[in-house]
């Protein structure tokens, strides 16, 4: 069953890649806002496109950050019971949660997100404000993209549970990859 382990690692690498993208976008956001404040205050110069870029970046960060967080155990649990469970117990809980909650939810929202972004593409939607950004479909398209990435991260979580339940690997339960 090395295949499942490889697949799980492949999905982890994919999520890490999302983490890199989001981090770079975050640093861009930081300087984007700083630049806008500086230009407005010091040079009386406002660019609506740069102002819109702020929310484009910020929303892409949180949307694509969610699948990264799934892979790295970053999402909050009410762990009154969970923290006392054995690894097998945790794996069963996560397996149940992924199959019943996470995967159907992300797939369904992703599905409707495709239509949402496609509408925008078909209309050639742009910003309604002077000098705003064109191609609104790109940022709208991040919604389905992010939700399908969440599905993929959810599959990674399922594999992790299966590997743990079969006794192949307890990666991801004994040592959550990132800690604060």
């Amino acid at each position: 069953m090395m295949f499942l382990i490889h697949l799980e690692r492949g999905i982890t690498r994919f999520s890490n890649f999302l983490g890199v993208i989001c981090t770079l976008m975050f640093i861009a956001l930081l300087f984007n806002v700083f630049y806008d404040v500086l230009m407005r205050y010091a040079f009386n110069n406002v660019s609506i496109a740069m102002q819109e870029l702020e929310w484009h970046l910020y929303s892409a960060i949180f949307l694509l950050g969610i699948p990264y967080g799934i892979q790295h155990g970053g999402h909050v649990r009410v762990d009154l019971i969970y923290e006392n469970l054995s690894i097998r117990g945790k794996a069963w809980t996560d397996l149940f949660g992924c199959i019943v909650f996470l995967i159907p939810f992300t797939l369904l929202v992703g599905y409707y997100g495709v239509g949402f972004a496609y509408e925008s593409y078909a209309l050639g939607e742009t910003s309604g404000d002077p000098g705003g950004l064109a191609h609104r479909w790109i940022i709208k398209g991040v919604i389905p993209l992010a939700f399908f990435c969440m599905t993929i991260s959810g599959i990674g979580m399922i594999l992790r549970c299966i590997n743990a339940l079969r006794g192949v690997s307890e990666e991801g339960f004994s040592h959550p990859p990132i800690q604060h």
Partner: peptide, 24 residues
């Protein structure tokens, strides 16, 4: 010129032509 004004849409474009800065 350089006037920072919240004025969305088409009217904002008109003012922008005169050198004002429509602001979100």
């Amino acid at each position: 010129k350089g006037l920072k004004m919240r004025i969305p849409g088409f009217a904002g474009e008109v003012l922008a032509k005169l050198g004002a800065n429509p602001t979100n």
